[in-house]
Simulated assay, not measured.
Amino acid sequence: MTKINVLYTSTEGNTQSFVEKLQVVAEKNGDILEARMIGDETEYANETEPYVAVVPTYLTGGTGIGPEVTEIFTSALGDYLSFGRNNQYLKGIIGSGNRNFNVQFNLTALRYADKFNVPMLFAFELRGSIFDAEKAYNLIKPLFGE
């Protein structure tokens, strides 16, 4: 049995829905997926175990690819990942977004992966499907050993 740790933020419930699918897939495979939502009210803590982060894309301004774009609603997670040495335990990023936004799809996750120098592991649209959750699970499980 493998324990998989996930930190995420969810504004409209899409990311939370995907994380719940990930939990179902992990349980089906005999593993435990512990997920914690990070938001504006979350008190900072020092992480002590490896984890992956799941982040939606909410942007404002510009075309989405220039410097004038600003991430909104996800800054609490970004600040938490930056706190203390938390980024040393971050193993990778899973991102979401809406493909209707073209180049902005998954942009927040790509930026987090670059900022924290970790791999961008997987991207899904909106709430994702159980198939997406299975693919993501198969990518993240090896990061947590056997």
Rank of each mutant, 00 (worst) to 15 (best):
N14A: 15
L90E: 05
T63Y: 05
A45P: 00
G78R: 13
S96G: 13
L22I: 04
P142H: 00
K115F: 05
G97F: 08
T9M: 04
A123H: 09
Y51Q: 07
L33G: 11
M1E: 08
M37C: 14
Y51I: 08
I38D: 06
D40T: 13
E68A: 10
Y80D: 02
M1S: 14
T60F: 04
T11E: 06
S82I: 00
R99V: 06
F73K: 09
R99D: 00
I93K: 09
G97I: 06
A26P: 01
E125A: 11
S10R: 09
V25Y: 08
S10W: 06
Y58R: 10
G92I: 12
S10H: 09
V55L: 02
G13A: 12
G62I: 11
Q104W: 01
K141W: 04
I38T: 03
K28N: 09
M1Y: 05
M37S: 09
S96M: 02
G145W: 10
I130R: 15
K141T: 06
T74C: 02
K28H: 09
D114T: 11
T48Y: 02
T60P: 00
E125K: 11
P56R: 08
R127V: 05
I72L: 02
T60W: 04
L90S: 05
T57Q: 03
N86L: 02
M1H: 14
L81P: 01
T63V: 03
Y112L: 14
Q23E: 15
S17M: 08
D40W: 03
F124D: 01
T108Y: 01
M120I: 00
Y44C: 02
K91L: 15
L121P: 05
N98K: 11
A113K: 09
D31T: 09
R85T: 15
E43N: 11
T42Q: 06
F124I: 01
V6C: 11
Y8H: 11
L59Y: 09
N46F: 05
L126W: 07
G64M: 07
T11Y: 06
A113V: 08
G78W: 01
V24M: 07
G30K: 12
T60Q: 10
F101A: 08
Y44W: 00
A76H: 12
G92A: 11
R99Y: 01
G92K: 15
T9C: 14
D132A: 08
T60I: 13
V55C: 04
A53C: 07
P119S: 12
K28S: 13
F101T: 11
I4K: 10
Y44F: 13
T11S: 10
A76V: 01
Y44A: 06
N117S: 13
D79H: 04
T60M: 12
G64A: 05
N14Q: 15
A45G: 00
T42P: 03
I65K: 14
Q23A: 15
F144P: 03
N98I: 09
L33R: 14
A136L: 03
L59W: 08
M37A: 12
G128K: 14
E43R: 10
N98Y: 12
V69T: 13
I140T: 05
E43Q: 11
T63D: 15
G92F: 08
M1W: 04
T2A: 15
N29Y: 03
F131Y: 07
G13K: 14
V118N: 08
I32M: 10
V52M: 09
L126V: 14
T48P: 00
N87P: 00
K3I: 14
K21M: 14
K3E: 12
T74G: 00
T108R: 05
R127M: 12
L126K: 14
N102P: 00
N106H: 06
M1V: 13
